[in-house]
């Protein structure tokens, strides 16, 4: 039977998705700011982050109210806990986007570095993960969530590559250390975003199947 408060659950879930879209946009904009050296995008990211923080608080409060008023069990309980967890994860993603934007801001103000780092393909992969993870949550798509989990290794290898590239650049030319470190930080932040997307994907699988897949729990 559909209960009257399920409507509120649905609303909360949609609100969370809205927040996800904002985060997704912020990540994309921050990466674009770095790639195409556009200062105005950085401003937008900072604007977005404010909204994201605001939404986090709103969703948090509403979630707690729903806990208090509906005493959810089973799927309702999983949904509500997961919404609150994903809420935190998304907010953290927003913070990482801001970090990327800030490093980009510094890099834009400096002359560009000569060698190409694999930031663009990595960012693409991360954005796809974020996007897929949100879609899998919203559409309760387990297979999509599993695909997100699989792409984590790829991100790690990108990150390693950036690390190696940055290290060799710094060894060659100490003038580049500050800029190179910024690039390293961008890669590092992207990797963190991918981790958080991973978390959300795991939570989504738990939400739908009630099955624990965190920390490679599955199969043990």
């Amino acid at each position: 039977m559909e209960r009257h408060f399920h409507e509120e659950f649905k609303g909360l879930r949609e609100k969370l998705f809205q927040m996800g879209l904002l985060v997704e946009g912020a990540v994309e904009k921050s990466v674009q700011a770095f790639l195409s050296r556009k200062m105005e995008l950085i401003e937008e990211v900072l604007e977005d982050e404010k909204l994201i923080n605001q939404l986090e608080i709103e969703i948090d409060e509403k979630g707690h109210t729903l806990f208090a008023l509906t005493q959810p069990v089973a799927i309702d309980l999983r949904l509500l806990t997961m919404i609150l967890k994903i809420n935190t994860d998304l907010e953290r993603m927003g913070d990482h986007a801001v970090n990327i934007a800030e490093k980009s801001k510094y890099l834009i103000s400096q002359s560009p570095l000569a060698p190409e780092f694999p930031i663009e393909p990595m960012a693409k992969a991360v954005q796809k993960m974020v996007r897929d993870t949100l879609d899998s949550f919203m559409n309760e798509n387990v297979s999509l969530a599993r695909k997100v989990l699989e792409s984590d290794d790829m991100i790690d290898s990108y990150n390693d590559k950036i690390y190696m590239d940055v290290a060799s650049l710094m060894e060659k030319d100490p003038q580049t250390v500050r800029r190179a470190l910024s690039v390293l930080m961008i890669g590092r932040n992207l990797e963190r975003i991918a981790d958080l997307a991973n978390n959300i994907a795991e939570d989504t699988i738990y939400l739908i199947q009630g099955k624990e897949v965190r920390h490679h729990f599955e199969g043990t």
Binding site: E7, E8, L12, L21, L22, E24, E44, E47, M138
Partner: peptide, 29 residues
């Protein structure tokens, strides 16, 4: 249908429309 709707919202946000229309929190009236 939900996915398609999401796509719409997604586009809007990318185009810089940062209004939070849709996905409103349903409160007890």
């Amino acid at each position: 249908l939900i996915a398609e709707e999401n796509q719409g919202t997604r586009e809007k946000i990318k185009m810089g429309t940062r209004t939070l229309a849709g996905g409103v929190l349903v409160d007890r009236e």
